[in-house]
Computed example of a mutant assay.
Amino acid sequence: MKMDKQFLDILSNVHQDFSGWDFSYITATGRMGSQLLSWSYGSMAIPLIQKANSMLDMGTGGGELLSMLSPLPKRVFATEGYLPNVPIARKRLEPLGVKVVQIDEDSHLPFEDNQFDLILNKHESYCPEEIRRIISDDGIFLTQQSGGLDCREINETFGVPLNEEFNHWNLETAVLEIEANGFEVLTSKEEFPLQRFYDVGSLIYYLKAIPWQVPGFEPEKYLTKIYEIHQIIQEKGFFDVSQHRFIIKSRPI
């Protein structure tokens, strides 16, 4: 298959490093955009933070989001399971008084019973039983999750099945798990907003940053499929996929 020069030029410039949890390389430049949700995780989190005495941010990444939600309570912890992110998060968050803890298992967190009156979790796995153990009796657990059908069109185009382990992961399943572990759900919503790629370079960058979407992804391995997407973008101006997002605000009962 003969590929046009523009496509080959894009492929020769897709080696930008990704660190922390910062997609600004492709979002701030307008190369990838996402449809707005009907809720704002940050706007929901801020008033909860202002009322909290002790809080935990689970899966803080490089601490990008948490660092922008100040002022923070006096007692703040953040967890991160991806080792390369830990020093990035510590550099950003420790000057703000946040203790960053590297973890290996969601089901065994190094915290005391009833330690936190607020637990935040954005796009991070969690164990409902362990959340119930470490949250205070009058605490709040706020989580926004990426569902199991996230960006399924990428997998369909590449001929790669979605991860079977997470196919079931949706609002209904999460609510049932949380309620079964002693929580009352106060707010819950689920939506499938569009995510738009305006060039295949942004798609390649995205897939390298989230290796669980297409395991073992390398551009050379999927060159024909990537070129097909490039042609779609040349014709339509973009390539759309569906995100899968849901949010739950709950409290112990």
Score class of each variant (00 low, 15 high):
Y41W: 13
V76K: 10
F111T: 09
I140F: 14
Y126L: 13
W21Q: 08
P215I: 06
N114Y: 09
Y25A: 13
I232K: 13
F197R: 01
Y82A: 07
L37M: 09
I88D: 04
M1G: 06
E156V: 00
E190T: 01
T187A: 07
T60M: 05
A45M: 00
G20C: 07
E179R: 13
P110Y: 08
E220D: 13
L118H: 08
T224P: 00
L37W: 02
L37P: 01
Q234T: 14
L194H: 05
L186R: 15
S70D: 02
R245S: 04
M32V: 03
E177A: 06
Q195S: 04
K221N: 07
G182K: 10
F141S: 09
P193Q: 07
D22W: 01
F238H: 07
P215G: 02
Q16D: 12
V175L: 13
Q16E: 13
S34V: 04
G216T: 02
T143F: 11
Q50I: 00
S19F: 12
F158N: 00
E228I: 00
L72R: 03
W21G: 04
K221V: 09
M55G: 11
V100S: 10
K5H: 08
C151M: 08
E172D: 15
S34R: 08
N167Q: 14
Q145C: 14
N181H: 13
M68F: 12
P211C: 02
V14S: 14
G20P: 08
D150K: 04
F18L: 01
P84M: 11
E190A: 06
L8T: 13
S24Q: 04
Q115H: 11
I210Y: 11
G216I: 01
M1I: 00
D9M: 12
S19G: 02
L96C: 09
M55Y: 09
P71M: 01
